[in-house]
Nucleic acid binder design. Structure first.
Lengths: 199, 199
DNA sequence: CTTCCTTATGACACTTTGTCGCTTCATAAA
DNA sequence: TTTATGAAGCGACAAAGTGTCATAAGGAAG
């Protein structure tokens, strides 16, 4: 976590640093991000950076935390907007994640952060800020239409849909697929998931 | 690609270098791997390394290529051993990838390489060495039991199964799940995919 | 023996992260 | 007004890493 010093900073300065962080972490992977670039852009001396953040990891963590909270809110909203239909919600989540700008976050940042989350196996739902405001997504899922045989089927459904949605999303963010093709594929894949693969 | 010089090397020396590469790339991500460690272990001077490989990326590419070819062979074998049942093959692939040693490759290396492949969006099937010997995996798939409506349904089936298998595999390799729990989950998830999610 | 090409080698230039000790500044106490 | 105190500012520097380059060594052929 950033030091108290950082949070005590005048808003203008803190914003300048935040902006530089987001900018730099948008440009590439965690390893590629350069502290030198960050401090130059934010116009702070090297020593200050290390007074605010323990190290580079601490700095990206700060950005990730902000992103996670926003991401959860969006997921939650997607489900509510879809009246609890997890298939439709999945498409909505895909849409916003592959959109040019995700609130204040650039799509490039989204890509790198989603990557980082995956790499470090960070689960959005386990984030403490999310837990604090968690309205339990699961409650909002409409179970009427779902073929739930055992109690934990819903858990597996979510796992599967998450894996598929994430897989396509990453392909699009890495520019291996166009946004449109990715969406068509996701639609098709969700359709298959509804009906099953076996005769 | 490594230089001709590298391939002209006496076998003993080449093996020593290969071993050092695998050892170092097993220890962590691409960025964490240190050329200094590699040359110290392989007992070659710094300049030689750069005579054999363009740069660090070139070196890991070499290791990845070897891995990919072996991985494809294993996948192909899994499908044949399963008599064309893609669900069963998926479990077999999971098993071998989460196994202590994957042929000569350490499980840690597998993890880092699979990670690297994902990060750089490298598709095993697009590898030229694989393409060369590709006997078209798809031909071996038993379509009898599959609910194929349109022509490209099979393509989507493979995408979905791949996404899910990979997802669980990575969870296990990152030690978020035990191998056993991961397998149970995969079994369950494959079962769900057979039957579909919708009432 | 000389020539020519391939391979070997480690010092060096450059970059990057993170540390450390000193300076400056604001504010409260004397 | 002066002094004390702690928060914040600051950049030189150590340490570690990557990639380059000029030069040495090897060896085959004429």
């Amino acid at each position: 976590m950033p030091s108290r010093t950082f949070f005590n900073l005048k808003e203008e300065k803190r914003n300048r640093i935040e902006k530089a962080l987001i900018h730099e972490f948008s440009k590439g992977s965690f390893e590629q991000a350069s502290i030198t670039n960050i401090i130059e852009e934010a116009k702070i001396p090297r020593g200050s950076f290390y007074q605010y953040f323990e190290d580079k990891k601490d700095a990206i963590k700060y950005v990730i935390e902000k992103f996670i909270v926003m991401d959860y809110e969006k997921m939650y909203q997607s489900l509510v907007d879809s009246n609890g239909d997890i298939f439709e919600a999945s498409l909505k989540i895909y849409d916003y994640r592959t959109n040019e700008t995700i609130l204040n976050f650039d799509i490039e940042l989204a890509k790198n952060i989603l990557e980082e989350l995956r790499k470090n196996n960070i689960n959005v739902f386990e984030n403490k800020d999310v837990l604090k405001t968690k309205k339990s997504l699961i409650e909002f899922i409409n179970k009427e239409e779902l073929n739930l045989v055992t109690d934990d089927d819903l858990f597996y459904f979510i796992r599967i849909i998450t894996a598929i949605t994430r897989s396509v999303t990453m392909e699009v963010l890495s520019e291996r697929l166009t946004k449109e093709d990715g969406r068509k594929m996701l639609e098709k894949e969700l359709e298959i998931m509804k009906n099953g693969m076996k005769k």
